[in-house]
Design a binder for these strands. Structure first.
Length: 113
DNA sequence: ATGGTGACGCACT
DNA sequence: AAGTGCGCCACCA
């Protein structure tokens, strides 16, 4: 201890970076991992500003396994990049924009007592 | 300090 | 099954 608690943004970026390749997590889970359950919205806002960082924001999806920002306003440009990144990791997205085997690729695993 | 916004989440109709 | 409304929390003016 000793170090001041990291700003929410830092905690979120760290949580997203912690998502293994080929896996996906939800905004809510990221917020939870960041120590602020319920702040899923804020997580999205932060990721929107981190699309040009080394943060694999493409691994973060909605609670339903739906790719959120992909259909957003200014996210269209990055949507293509994100989609390509997902494909590179073997993560397929259905026609409805839902991740295939979402529950299986979800991170962290819900089975983590 | 107050008000408004937003890559969300969930319940209800 | 699909669409709508309200609530949650952090950040900016």
């Amino acid at each position: 201890l000793g170090a001041s608690p990291p700003p929410f943004a830092v905690a979120v970026l760290r949580a997203v970076r912690d998502i293994p390749r080929g896996r996906v997590s939800t905004y809510g889970d990221v917020a939870l991992a960041a120590g602020r359950p319920g702040a899923a919205r804020t997580v999205g806002g932060l990721l929107s500003a981190a699309t040009r960082r080394d943060v694999p924001y493409h691994r973060v999806v909605g609670a339903d396994g739906r790719v959120g920002g992909a259909g957003g306003p200014a996210g269209m440009s990055d949507a293509g990049v994100a989609e390509r990144a997902r494909r590179t990791e073997g993560v397929a997205v259905g026609r409805d924009g839902r991740i295939s085997a979402f529950a299986e690729r979800r991170w962290p695993p819900p089975t983590s007592s």
